[in-house]
Amino acid sequence: MSASLIELREALLVTPLSAIALTLAAYLAALWVVERIGRPSWCPAVLLAALLVAASLWGLSIDVADYQRGSDWLMLLLGPATVALGVPLYQQLHHIRALWKPLALSLPPAAALASCYSLALAWALGASPEVLASLAPKSVTAPIALGIIDELGGSVPLLMGGLLITGVMATLAVSLLAAPLGIRDHRILGFALGINGHAIGTVRAFEMSATAGAFASLGMSLTGIFTALCLPLAWRLLGL
């Protein structure tokens, strides 16, 4: 009896479908819970879903590497999904045409500083080169950031954790700082959310208004492109 159970366990671990089913189940469960507790911005569904998967793996004593071999089949779709981001970018080109000057003046320094501040702080506190590489693309939307991390040689799990915390922090920071700075322009608030808080900030911006959402997704795409083009080059030049 137990021998055949072990055999069954082996068979289920071999097929990627187990990992895919676990991923879908955890994500749907997380969406349900997050909806129930009123979608707080400090707890994105991804975070809860990842916790559920981690707890299941731990409970069933499945090696995380086995899970990731299976879920790689799902993450394969990130390639075409990144290309798909070109469609909303195309649909928002009219904003770029209308506001190219303020964009050209503020987006590159903002996107570059989003990375530099964290690198400087981490470096000053003695972080290793691998940690620095993992933190550098922290404000970039995940599918693009995963491509950047391949070039820099950082740790994917650390990057993912950093992305989540950055998104949540950026959302908090924008709502905290907007009033003292006297900024009520939803275009500016949306941009700040998209540039610093990638997809998590963009979701929050769409809750504020359609204008804020459109500018957040534009800020997110442009930051992603700018960082993807410049960061690996800067990394090479610095000899890291």
Binding site: A19, T23, A26, V46, A50, V64, Q68, M75, M160, G161
Partner: peptide
């Protein structure tokens, strides 16, 4: 997208 990146978050 959020679901597609979720397996990457598990590793953390």
């Amino acid at each position: 997208l959020a679901m597609l990146i979720m397996p990457g978050v598990v590793g953390v």
